[in-house]
Structures are given as C-alpha cells and as structure tokens.
Amino acid sequence: MDHGEVARDWIQRGFSCGAFTDPPGCEWRDDVHDADELITVVEGRLEVLVHGEAYALEAGDELYIPRGATHTVRNVHAGATRWLYGYD
C-alpha cells in the first residue's frame, strides 16, 4: 500500500490524508468528528469500534466512519501499526 496512491485517491473523493504510527496497545478512545472519516491500514492491524460494532482492519482495508459517530481505534498488532486517516 502506497501512502501517495491512497492520498491521491482520497483527495479525488474529497478527503484529506494524514498518517499515524501507533505502538502496540495504543488506543484513541471515544473520538467524535464533525466530518466523515476514512481509515486505512498500511502495515499492522487495527481494531475499530464504531457505535459498539467492532471492525478488524489489516493492511489495505478501508473503513468509512460517518460524522458524529463515536469511535475507538486500537492497535492490536504485536508491533507498530502504520495507518492513514482523512476527513471530508
């Protein structure tokens, strides 16, 4: 998965594209945004809870999170997880 390729695709779809690298066990708890969000994993694994529903994301998987949705993102990989996020 290429960050630049994802960024170009997301920009065409009206989204920004930023990057995080999270250590094992890192958790972003109960986030809520005023914009729609996309998440994709570059390397590693994430568990994403959206309104209590769990999604397991691996490299190449993309998840859409609608604006106003309470969500938690957790690195469940044994190593660092590199992932991209973007807002419309």
Rank of each mutant, 00 (worst) to 15 (best):
Y87W: 10
T81M: 06
V6L: 08
C17T: 08
W83F: 15
A59T: 14
E47I: 07
H33C: 03
Y85E: 04
T72V: 10
E43S: 12
G44L: 02
V76H: 01
V73E: 02
H33T: 08
R74C: 08
R67P: 00
A78E: 08
A7T: 09
A19I: 09
R8N: 08
A35T: 13
H3E: 15
G18C: 04
G68K: 00
V73W: 09
E27A: 15
C26Y: 15
V6A: 13
F20M: 05
D34N: 14
T21G: 00
N75P: 01
A54L: 06
Y55P: 04
D22N: 15
H33A: 14
L38P: 05
L84M: 03
G60A: 05
H3A: 14
D30T: 04
T72L: 02
G18Q: 08
L46T: 06
L57D: 02
G60E: 08
D88Y: 02
A35R: 13
R82H: 08
E43Q: 12
E43R: 11
A69P: 01
A56F: 08
D30A: 12
Q12S: 14
H51M: 11
E47A: 11
H51K: 13
G68T: 01
T81D: 01
F20K: 12
A80W: 05
E53T: 15
F15Y: 15
M1N: 10
E62F: 04
P23V: 15
E47R: 15
Y64W: 12
E5V: 13
Q12D: 13
T40H: 01
Y87S: 00
Y85P: 03
H71M: 04
C17F: 04
E47M: 13
Q12C: 08
E5A: 05
G4M: 04
E5L: 12
T40Q: 10
G14A: 13
G14D: 06
R13P: 05
D30K: 13
C26L: 08
M1G: 14
T70I: 07
L57P: 12
G18A: 05
I39C: 14
E58Q: 12
Y87I: 01
A7V: 11
P24V: 10
A59C: 02
A54N: 13
L49Y: 14
E47G: 02
Y64T: 06
R13I: 05
G79S: 01
L38K: 15
Q12F: 10
R8E: 11
P66T: 11
L49I: 09
G18P: 03
R8Y: 07
V73A: 14
P24D: 02
L46W: 05
T40L: 07
L46R: 01
P23E: 11
G60N: 07
D36N: 15
I65Q: 08
L49S: 13
I39W: 09
G14L: 07
D36W: 04
F15K: 09
A56P: 00
W28F: 14
D61Q: 00
A59V: 07
S16L: 07
P23H: 10
A19K: 10
D2V: 08
Y85C: 11
A54F: 03
R13C: 09
Y87E: 03
